[in-house]
Design a protein around this nucleic acid. Structure first.
Lengths: 157, 157
DNA sequence: GCTGAAAGTATAAATTC
DNA sequence: GAATTTATACTTTCAGC
């Protein structure tokens, strides 16, 4: 069974996407060499992949530890809000909090899962206090003891 | 109270890191303009930030949806392994699985939290079957219904 | 850290396959 | 229709200051 991808992306596109999602700071010439294409052809493909929305953005991944974010945690929350508009507000508030790296709406016991970065216990406490003002009925916090894997690489190959 | 960061990174460094963690595909010249520095000075700072390990890497963030990864989920697992060496093997296996985007060792009810990307129900089932062969005593899966926020930006400002 | 020049890249246009 | 080569503008990067 073939997926939708193959209808619009050929193997070279996939190769380019895979190289870029692992290291984006690579020259066109080098990328072209790896996929056996001239620099202009490579460049045109990247542009196409960008405009067609396959590449969202390019970012630098910073070193959490060196920047003092010792307290990564996952926070599971339930809300007692049921009105759609108020839920919208809650979600906008969660999104706007810079400590919140990720927020997912989940199936299962909890409504939302947050991934939160804080520098120390004091900051985390302050963050949870802010959370409690947003209409949260239940919070459960799990600290990250150790990172085993942290990646943004999708298995497209 | 001041953190350790300010002893080695000045405000311009922080500014550069913050711009790059939001958009890495920006020219030196443009970056220099934004932080009021000449291109060579900007470049030298980036190189320093890289060699000193503040910048881990630069990556392209791909569009999960467009690439067919409809089934993002969080999987909570417990293991019945207690020997250090065998745990090491388990962790190496988890890390090696390309569907596993993240793996964290956690406090609380579960030992590990996995963030997993799959294309469909069939792939997910296969993944869970693979997991079960690694010495897992308990698995709980939560599907992501909706992404409210997905970011790699640390609140360094 | 700045300025200015040399080397290296990205990108557009013209050409070929 | 897509890739290559050629040509140009732009950026990075190395001196000297």
């Amino acid at each position: 069974m073939e997926t939708l991808i193959s209808k619009v992306l050929d193997p070279v596109d996939i190769q380019i996407l895979d190289i870029l999602q692992k290291t984006a700071n690579i020259s066109n010439a080098e990328l072209g060499r790896r996929v056996n294409l001239s620099p202009p052809a490579t460049h045109a493909r990247i542009k196409r992949l960008e405009t067609e929305g396959y590449i969202n953005r390019q970012v630098a991944i910073l070193n959490q530890e060196k920047l003092g974010f010792d307290l990564l945690c996952f926070i599971f929350i339930n809300t007692d809000i049921h009105q759609a508009e108020q839920l919208e507000v809650l979600e906008q508030n969660l999104e706007a909090m810079t400590e919140v790296l990720e927020c997912h709406c989940l199936t299962g016991e909890f409504d939302y899962l947050l991934k939160v970065a804080n520098k120390d216990r004091r900051e985390l406490e302050e963050f949870i206090r802010k959370l409690n003002k947003l209409g949260i009925s239940r919070i459960q916090t799990s600290l990250v003891l150790r990172e085993i894997k942290q990646s943004t690489v999708l298995p497209i190959l």
